[in-house]
Design a protein around this nucleic acid. Structure first.
Lengths: 338, 338
DNA sequence: CTGAAAGCGCTTACAG
DNA sequence: CTGAAAGCGCTTACAG
């Protein structure tokens, strides 16, 4: 089959060298350590490169230096939960991409077809960032113990070259529950996320801490584990409403669940917030839109990407030595549901 | 500064060869064209590779073959519209990643720090997929005219090695408007997206076609251009409500705008759908949730990623020869708003 | 079915 | 400040 396009042959460093009558070493230096070559030749070479359309071949550079200027992105779209959605994945990707590109780093999305660590090694990745989904996938965890710099999001994982960034889930949950207490509630229930995920577990801890601090009890049937999804929240709320006495307020550890819970409450004929108050977590877009507005805990969306990039770059500059974990502050957003 | 980790030295093809007492060529063949080497040596080499932990170095392979097994992802987070959101970016990424990985291809997210075409060449990308945002960025358009296989999403761009996949926006809009006509509406307005984007323009075309086919007129003040955003839809609706006679139905070319329009209508004291019917486009998650449910046109979300991957792979197998564009069917989802 | 050898396009001590 | 040369780890005609 005849190619429809000539694969354009890119100019090589050799051609630039020949053109300028210098050695390839000098051309290489101009692109890597320009300050070390004389101003005149440097300029000549830059000009020639521009004219010829020379671009350093990244594969060759990577082969020679063992640095790829690429960082892997592990975003494990859980097989068991194919519909799993991150509440603000897009923001994370944008900020991460932007912050990394300022350091000349590109993002390689790794597929789960091969163990992540293998892929990282084969591609000489400089580092890796993990967006966790609570799957506790061994292939993901293996990265944290390996030699490759890695930063985990929402997964409190550290290692010889591994650190993490996460929200202050505990603090945020405490904020939310304290707010309910301040509103006069005494029977406060919780709908949690899957407790094997760090955010779910931490938010539950915050919930407990706030109640304990106020000397309030937690009824066993006022704590139901759910799945971060809308329907899950709905179902969970049904169970809470069936308890006696039923709670006057509920803290749902995720906005989708909170919104599902609101629907269940409304369908049961309850008024929000008069009959039952609800507070969520995440501040997804929908939270502001669903009447009467969902009180919730906002995370620092942009912070994830930039903090992750910063941590990674720090490691790259310090031989993999990981910086301390970043815990992003959370803030309470009060709306009509409480 | 002392490295905290030994950069683990990966085994090379030479070591495997030595270990098995064969040439590196043979080892290479085992990994590239296994059928061409005798079963026994093949097995011996596989075993040895596994034992030693050998992984082919991708940079070296790319350097030798000029194929990187990476495809670039251009997802231009418009600087002028930083908050720009794709209605289902996450689905596209997942399906694209999955479909590509079945062919051993990885996704490299390109940053806008350098012209995309340059980046593609430097990295020896096998191809590129463009998720358009209507920016008409010359750096994006340049790709379509270059030698690198490329498939554009939502951007009807073809070229010597370029094809596209898009939704049947015109057909979808026609469906939506026809539905309004069937409901008995005669004064139907439209809130469009930014008309320089293909989806907005095409949906407007569909709107016009449906009205023309029914012999219905379009009042000039019943067509307002907006921005695909919620607030934009709100503002646009305000203008429509100020017209006289006002429309009895409106087709908003995006769900966010439609929802903004619904709020405006409701705030103006109108009942939906009795006083005014509204239909959107995209079937975002929110559409089903916002009372009374938004009638809308659904796109084939999963289709984008898989079709794009298919088109790209086809090109890779045919020397860049682009397949015909893919136009994904759309379907009307009727809910309470009409 | 297998090997020896050239080549892919860079970087980087080592000399000067 | 610059050059000659070795080396990074593969692949692939070319012979056999």
């Amino acid at each position: 089959m005849k190619p429809v396009t000539q694969r354009v042959r890119m100019a090589t460093i050799r051609e630039v060298a020949r053109y300028c009558d210098v050695s390839v070493a000098t051309v290489s230096r101009v692109f890597n350590t320009p300050e070390i070559v004389s101003p005149e030749t440097r300029q000549r070479i830059f000009d020639a490169a521009a004219e010829i359309g020379y671009l350093p071949n990244e594969s060759a550079r990577t082969l020679a230096t063992k640095k790829s200027n690429m960082v892997g992105l592990i975003w494990d779209t859980d097989h068991r939960r194919p519909g799993w959605r991150h509440p603000f994945l897009q923001e994370i990707l944008v900020t991460l991409k932007t912050a990394l590109s300022a350091h000349g780093l590109h993002l390689l999305m790794l597929s789960h077809r091969e163990p992540y660590l293998q892929a990282a090694r084969r591609h000489n990745l400089d580092g890796v960032v993990i967006i966790d989904n609570g799957s506790q996938d061994p292939a993901v965890l293996a990265l944290a113990d390996a030699e490759i710099p890695c930063v985990a999001l929402d997964l409190r994982r550290t290692g010889p070259t591994c650190t993490y960034v996460t929200s202050d889930n505990t603090g945020g949950a405490t904020l939310a529950v304290q707010h309910l207490i301040d509103r006069g509630h005494r029977r406060i229930a919780s709908i949690t996320g899957p407790l094997q995920t760090a955010p779910a577990a931490e938010r539950l801890t915050g919930f407990r801490a706030a109640l304990a601090a106020a000397g309030l009890p937690i009824a066993a049937d006022h704590m139901v584990e759910s799945d971060f999804y809308l329907d899950g929240g709905h179902t969970a709320m049904l169970r809470l409403l069936a308890s006696a006495p039923r709670p006057t307020a509920v803290f749902a550890a995720g906005d989708e669940m909170a919104i599902g819970a609101m629907r269940a409450a409304r369908q049961a004929g309850l008024r929000i917030p008069d009959d039952i108050a609800i507070v969520g977590f995440d501040d997804i877009e929908l939270a502001a839109l669903v009447p009467p507005g969902l009180t919730t805990v906002a995370q620092d969306r942009a912070g994830f990407g930039t903090a992750a990039a910063e941590a990674l770059v720090t490691m790259l500059q310090n031989a993999g030595q990981p910086p301390a974990p970043t815990v992003l502050p959370t803030t309470l957003i009060v709306r009509g549901s409480t």
